[in-house]
Design a protein around this nucleic acid. Structure first.
Lengths: 195, 195
DNA sequence: TCAAACCTTCCCGTTAACGTTAATATTTTG
DNA sequence: CAAAATATTAACGTTAACGGGAAGGTTTGA
């Protein structure tokens, strides 16, 4: 039911990983997908070579409908990194990751899409902060420290509230589980007596 | 499609008599039964002394609307233990507990009301099973054991599936938390460096 | 090359879970 | 006991989160 291809090697969001060179939500991917003389098809038909995945493929992989993806885009939750000249959406790896997050937040925390959008906006903000942090890394300490501190503190606050939220849910879930568990053990004990 | 004439006074045939006292599950609301000399109003309004709580009070305590309570009743999720001669709903302690469960299941597990109804039906079934179990407690072991065993096994299966469900959710939630947590700690470390 | 498959943007429909209002009855309280 | 508060049923309205189809353009595989 879940995506089998769990390339779950997602690094910590705030980790300074230079490989992740994604700018802001500009989405200005070069629509020029020239046929360079290369391997013309990796292995899957639905996926463009380097242009990204088509919507149908993404939907199938994530177990949602194409309508859902377009809806998420309409709400500002998930924007494909690019489009073809003809206007087709092309999703890339980070878009898939984003979709995963959306689905997780929806299923796990039961958040509605608007709340998720806000949260993801915060998350995007964190990415921005990270970039900003890096860009101030070599600034003179006099002004740079102030900026860096502010950035980190904002990030910490964001994450703190998220964690708080999750902890609350975790605790309540655990309590509920314990309740059921106790009753189950009682049953089990009774069954034991019959042996 | 759905007939508007919802038989509101249809006692669930499968429902055990709800008058017996529940013993697990607190369901303990501040039973301010003490009307000693002092601030006399306390909560005189809304709560009948022994007839149970009126719908408005129950709704307020649970943080839902009266409409919601009636809706839950319409769906067969929550039926007040009694009614007044005039037809007003009167909720008792076990009804409040039931409402709590509904809300928990909705919020925590993100279940829809239909699924909750099924689950609660199962739970009611468990209560029945317990009653049946007790009533067979002094039956001759030849036939009694068979019945008891079947009862307990059904109960165990029900609880097992519930726990499984919760565990899955717990694990995923914990994983998600860890992810956020790691990034937060990275932030904290960076902040530390600035000191 | 060319049909099949897939995509695009509207736009209306659906379902769950209530909200809201209306017209009326009941309960509480001064 | 009468007013005020709260309740009842019934009916229609709303919102979120999509589903589904039409009319037409784009990509793709043979």
């Amino acid at each position: 039911m879940s995506a089998p291809t769990t390339a779950n090697s997602s690094p910590s969001p705030l980790r300074a990983d230079p490989r992740h060179e994604r700018r802001a939500l500009d989405g200005s991917l070069p629509t020029d997908r020239g046929h360079s003389a290369g391997p013309r098809d990796g292995e899957s038909a639905g996926a463009g070579e380097d242009g990204g995945l088509r919507i149908g493929k993404v939907a199938a992989r994530a177990g949602v409908s194409t309508r859902t993806l377009r809806y998420y885009e309409e709400l500002g939750l998930l924007e494909p990194s690019g489009r073809t000249a003809g206007g087709e959406r092309r999703y890339q790896t980070q878009d898939l990751a984003q979709l995963e997050r959306i689905i997780e937040l929806k299923d796990l925390l039961g958040m509605n899409l608007e709340a998720i959008r806000e949260l993801l906006t915060s998350r995007a903000r964190l990415d921005e902060l990270r970039v900003a942090y890096k860009s101030h890394e070599d600034a003179p300490a006099t002004t740079g420290d102030t900026v860096r501190r502010a950035i980190l503190e904002e990030a910490l606050a964001l994450q703190g509230s998220l964690i708080e939220r999750m902890d609350s849910k975790l605790a309540r879930l655990a309590a509920y589980r314990a309740e059921i568990r106790a009753s189950a053990e009682h049953c089990a004990a009774l069954l034991q007596q019959l042996e």
